[in-house]
């Protein structure tokens, strides 16, 4: 559904804004913006995506090819919401190996049974 056409009724709509000082109008502008942005940023705070997870693995020392493949495996297993970086790090700690070694082992198909347990 698209918004329908509407004539320029600015002169009517502006009546209640006219009484505001410039400063009050600015304040009103930014208060409205904050209300619009608040639910958007809350969604970002509490959600993740494949791109975010790939960026985490990049930062942990994986190449872009490795990060993409690893995140693909995590998505298939429905584990993205746990945090791929966390799951790789915990595996590394449990096995006493480096983060890179843990990721490379996962790419080779190893240890998946222990992931997310």
């Amino acid at each position: 559904m698209t918004s329908s056409e509407r004539p320029d009724d600015f002169e009517i709509r502006r009546q209640r804004l006219r009484v505001m000082s410039d400063e009050a109008l600015h304040h009103h502008f930014w208060a409205l913006v904050e209300r619009i942005v608040a639910p958007l940023i809350e969604e970002a705070r509490t959600h993740t995506t494949p791109a975010i997870e790939r960026s985490v693995l990049l930062r942990m020392g994986f190449s872009s090819l490795e990060a993409k493949a690893l995140v693909g495996h995590f998505v298939e297993r429905g584990l993205l919401g746990r945090g791929t970086g966390r799951l790789v790090l915990e595996l590394a700690k449990r096995k006493g190996i480096s983060v890179r070694e843990a990721g490379v082992a996962l790419l080779a198909g190893q240890h998946w049974a222990e992931i997310g347990a």
């Binding site: 985490v56 945090g83 970086g85 966390r86």
Partner: peptide
């Protein structure tokens, strides 16, 4: 494009890296 790829973070979600935004146990 990429609809349906946003996933809720679990309470124990973690990203052990710097410059990460949002809920993170680390």
């Amino acid at each position: 494009v990429a609809a349906g790829t946003v996933v809720a973070r679990e309470p124990d979600y973690g990203a052990p890296v710097c410059s990460h935004f949002g809920h993170n146990i680390y």
